[in-house]
Simulated assay, not measured.
Amino acid sequence: MKMDKCLLTVVVGVLMLGGCSARVVTVSPGPLIRVEGQQVSIRCDVAEYSGPREQDFEWMMIRKAIGTRIKIISTFDAGYSHTSLSDRVASGDISVVRLHDSQVELKIAEVKMTDAGFYWCQTPSTDSVISGNYEAQVQLTVIPNTLQVSPLTPPPVRGATSEDILTFGPQGDVVTGAKYARRYADGGIRLVPGKNGVFELVISRMMSTDEGIYECNGTEWTHEDGGNWIKIVESTKEMGTVAVTPTGQSLSVKASSSSSSSSLLLTPDETLTLLCSVAADNLPSVSLEVSWLADGRDLITMERSGVVISNTSSSGGALGNRGEASLERTGGGEYRLGVRGVSGEDGGAYTCRIRAFIEKGGRSSGGGGRWHMAAEKTSSAVTVKVAQISE
């Protein structure tokens, strides 16, 4: 008898458990924020149900502009869709994909601004007793695709490949490419945020390996429930090709006179003539500033523009009563100094100083005159002596 009562108790307990099950319908946590034209996927699950293992689902929505429910798509009724959505359903732009017996996913291939609103997932009841929830909702916000990436400087010449340098993440963290980690730590590579979404990449001490096509990739993120960052749109723009000119390594300058000696002897009122010869691997791509110095003091300079500025004159100038100096370009990389009517004041050590400038952005870009001094070299000295005439 005790055995029978125990069995009866177990059976009754099982029956009570079956009758107390409560259906639970859930959808993807929201609100969901997507960009116009992007794909949207909203998952719907049902659990704790009775009846057939494979469950059916219906999707509906309320558009903000309308305020009434619109039927979207169903897993069992081909004619379920509202007439305003039937063409999109037929084309596959809107579809429902079964992931499991109790799980489906609503997909919109290219979301429109008019798709914004509240979405309902509903499951027709197959339970013997109605209990729990049979639908769940989530809000979808659709924003216009306004993300644009554009270079602040026009692309210069030459083509090459590109690779990751820096990534500025949605949480404010900076991730460097493996090749650039040390240079970033040393301050040789910096990311400088500016106003209105402008980010400037600054690379100091450029190397020949920095040549290549530079691209900027902008990504827009949204922070959804659960603490996850979701990428909603990205855009990539080629910023142009950077060519590194190894000017400092190849630039050379030599000062010489008509004689092969490093010294020159003149008599008063003669004309001093010295030649400055400049050589570089890429001489046509740089702009030169040429100066002659006497005993380390600037005598005359030809600026990048070709304008000549002299610190001497026939009546005496900043360097005293020296002869009148002139400077002219006589050929590719050749600059001739002339000093007429020399006197004892014109004796000294003459050197030629070259400063090589590169236009930022490249000459072909019409870059607006932003110049960077890439290298400076000074020649060895030519000693000039002016003989004193005894009376």
Rank of each mutant, 00 (worst) to 15 (best):
L7F: 02
L7Q: 13
T9S: 05
V14D: 00
V24P: 01
L32S: 10
V35R: 09
G37M: 09
D45N: 10
P52L: 04
M61W: 08
M61I: 07
R63H: 09
I66L: 15
R69W: 15
S74V: 01
D77G: 00
H82L: 04
T83S: 02
D87C: 05
H100G: 08
H100T: 06
S102T: 04
Q103H: 06
V104L: 14
A109N: 10
Q122Y: 08
A136L: 02
S150E: 12
P154W: 04
A160N: 01
E163Y: 07
I165K: 10
G172H: 09
Y180D: 09
A185R: 07
G187Q: 12
R190E: 14
L191S: 14
V192P: 01
G194Q: 07
E200Y: 02
E200A: 12
I213D: 01
W221L: 03
W221N: 02
E224T: 09
G227M: 03
N228K: 10
I230E: 15
E234W: 09
T236R: 01
A243G: 02
T245Y: 14
V253G: 11
V253P: 06
V253C: 09
A255L: 10
S263L: 04
S263W: 10
E270W: 03
T273R: 15
L274D: 04
A279H: 04
D281N: 15
M302G: 01
M302P: 11
S305C: 10
T312V: 11
S313G: 14
S315E: 13
E324G: 08
I354V: 13
R355T: 11
E359G: 04
K377Q: 14
V382N: 07
K385N: 07
A387I: 02
